[in-house]
């Protein structure tokens, strides 16, 4: 099981450092981490894909995240219905003669060519990790020059970020 966590945090300087420092201190390893703004300027969303771990370890990760003062909400999306996407840019060898092959290869992935050079093309693909892995392994025989992946970002299904934030606000018990 590779856990996927969605973490809402205060959009403040140093918060990313708090999270990464926590992971270093506790020896938690991550596969990918994305940080982005949300519809609220004060709140950022981190999407964490963790290395494989057992349930007890995941529980500890979530509890430690919760302990951070700047963490507003931690959601485990691993088993939950979610929409998750990643974007990859793949620069692949593509002499003119092979270009048509590459185009037909990437077509079923709904990937597109976003840059064309004399010897290479750069393919852009979005999807879940599995789909991206599949395209990468298809392109590998042609010679991948460079590869950049954004890491996964995710939302639970049938719950927009807006309603998630609203629920959070409504559940606040203030003042302490």
């Amino acid at each position: 099981m590779t856990p996927v966590l969605s973490v809402l945090v205060h959009n403040k300087p140093g918060v990313l450092n708090r999270i990464t420092a926590l992971f270093m201190r506790k020896g938690f390893n991550i596969q990918s981490l994305t940080v982005c703004i949300t519809e609220s300027p004060d709140v950022s969303r981190m999407t964490l894909v963790m290395n494989e771990m057992d349930e007890a370890a995941l529980e500890q990760v979530m509890k430690q995240l919760h302990k951070q003062i700047d963490v507003l909400k931690v959601t485990d999306l691993t088993e939950a219905p979610m929409v998750s996407r990643e974007l990859a840019l793949i620069q692949v060898n593509s002499p003119i003669a092979q270009r048509a092959t590459i185009t037909s290869l990437i077509d079923p992935f709904r990937a597109s060519i976003v840059d064309v050079g004399r010897d290479t093309v750069t393919v852009q693909v979005t999807g879940d990790a599995e789909k991206i892995e599949a395209l990468i392994s298809l392109l590998r025989p042609y010679g991948i020059r460079e590869l950049a992946r954004t890491g996964l970002t995710a939302l639970p299904r049938e719950a927009s970020a807006v309603s998630e934030l609203r629920r959070l606000n409504e559940s606040q018990v203030l003042p302490i």
Partner: peptide
């Protein structure tokens, strides 16, 4: 003003 810490309850 009381402290407002939605992430700390």
């Amino acid at each position: 003003d009381p402290p407002q810490l939605p992430g700390y309850q």
